[in-house]
């Protein structure tokens, strides 16, 4: 079973991933990362590892392996 890893420190909070996620599994943190962006968080209960967030992410925040 594959898992999604979120590299929160790379996230710039553009929210493209939330726009393409069919499962509504992506939310954004209330705290900011070191660069000052609210970062993406994946709900493992809802995620089906389809890879759409990886495809649209400009910053390689997501890894599915």
């Amino acid at each position: 079973m594959s898992e999604v890893t979120v590299y929160a420190e790379k996230c710039k909070g553009c929210r493209y991933c939330a726009g393409v996620c069919n499962q509504d599994a992506i939310s954004f943190s209330e705290k900011s990362n070191a660069a000052g962006y609210q970062f993406a968080q994946v709900d493992p209960e809802k995620c089906i590892q389809c890879g759409l967030c990886y495809t649209v992410c400009p910053d390689c925040v997501f890894e599915i392996a």
Binding site: M1, S2, K10, K12, C50, P58, D59
Partner: peptide, 22 residues
């Protein structure tokens, strides 16, 4: 369907683009 998606090795760790840059 679960897939495998890993960052290509040719791409480094941090880019300098703005948020949401294509």
């Amino acid at each position: 369907m679960a897939v495998t998606r890993v960052k290509p090795k040719l791409i480094g760790e941090n880019n300098q683009y703005c948020s949401g840059c294509g």
